[in-house]
């Protein structure tokens, strides 16, 4: 089972669970499985067309899936997937 690390700002949508295990063959299936388990999390991760939102990054291990095979990046049973919110700001 692949393990998904939920960032603290999104844990209110996962009953405060910090990691979730899912059965999936690739990133897309992992996100879909997670969304089925926690429907309120789905709209935080996906836009109306089902695409991963721009301000959310998905990492497999230490690699951004954008430099791999995006949502079709295969995952293994020992995979660690991280959901990463964009963290930024500043005075202007």
């Amino acid at each position: 089972m692949a393990r998904i690390i939920i960032p603290t700002p999104l844990r209110k949508f996962t009953n405060n669970q910090s990691t979730i295990e899912v059965e999936a063959i690739d990133i897309r299936e992992s996100i879909d499985a997670l969304s089925s388990l926690y429907p309120d999390l789905k709209k935080q991760l996906l836009d109306d067309t089902g695409e991963i939102r721009k301000f959310v990054r998905i990492y497999l291990g230490d690699e951004d899936i954008k430099v791999l095979n995006n949502e079709r990046t295969p995952v293994t049973d020992d995979a660690v997937i991280s959901i990463v919110p964009a963290i930024a700001g500043g005075l202007a």
């Binding site: 690390i5 919110p85 964009a86 963290i87 500043g90």
Partner: peptide, 19 residues
């Protein structure tokens, strides 16, 4: 001088550290 951003990899390492 007006903006900051934290690299996603640095962020996820912070989450892992907390876990």
């Amino acid at each position: 001088r007006r903006r900051f951003e934290i690299d996603p990899l640095e962020y996820l390492k912070a989450e892992r550290y907390a876990l």
